[in-house]
Every structure is written in structure tokens, then in C-alpha cells.
Amino acid sequence: MSDQEMDMEEGGVVKQFMFVNRKAPYGTIYALEGLEVVLISAAFEQDVSMAFIDDGVYELKKGQDTKALGQKNFSPTYRALEGYDIEKLYVEKESMAVRGLTVEDFAVDVTVLDHAEMAAKMAEQDVLISF
């Protein structure tokens, strides 16, 4: 075991974790599973952020109504993230633009980054977890 891992067991080292979301909400289980893992990760008191890229930006779309689908509408849960101290939600500008979305379309407050800024943000992470 490395020194860094030893420190972590003692509650010392805080790592930067980024959860990368690239899938739309209901067609596959990725988005929901990703969100649940993020909520669980909050218990470990690490520096957690979420990135929304490609179809992942659709997860944040306002006004989702799944009644007729018989599936749970989990979009309100993104609004609970703040209470879990997960406040860094990054959305890639180019992914929004090609889908005709603006920040007004989102159910939560986000930070919009262009692809170069997003790339830099990803590169500085200790751990990236993809959904």
C-alpha cells in the first residue's frame, strides 16, 4: 500500500473525483446508476464533481415527465446534490450547442465550460468515473 493510500485511510488525503456523464436519461440505465454512485460517493467526503458531455446534457433538462413510461423520474434528484455538498456541475458548451440547449433548459445551476476548459478540468482529476 502506498503512503498516499495509508493517509487516506486515516482521513487525510482528499482526492478529486469526477463523474463523467455522457448518456441520456431513460434509454439506458447509465444516467440513473451514475447519479446513485455520486450520491453514495458523497459519504466519503472527497472532492466530487460531475461533468455532463454529449447526451449526458439531456439528464439535466427541465420538465421531464415519465408518468406514461412507468419509470421513476429521477431528474428532481439532481437538485438534491447541493444538500450532499456536490456543487460542481460542469456542462460542456459544445455538447449543449449541437443539441440546441441553453442554461435556461436545465433544472439545476451549472457551470458551462468550453471543450478546452472541460479537457483541462478532466486532466487535473485524480480519478474519473464514466457513465
Partner: peptide, 15 residues
């Protein structure tokens, strides 16, 4: 009813 999840204990006490 607001968030569609039951809160973790830490979040519950804070709220």
C-alpha cells in the same frame, strides 16, 4: 416528494 430520494443520514440531519 421534492427530490425523489430518501436522504442519507448526514444530509437528513443537516436539512
Amino acid at each position: 416528494s421534492e427530490y425523489q430520494i430518501a436522504p442519507a443520514i448526514r444530509v437528513l440531519t443537516k436539512a
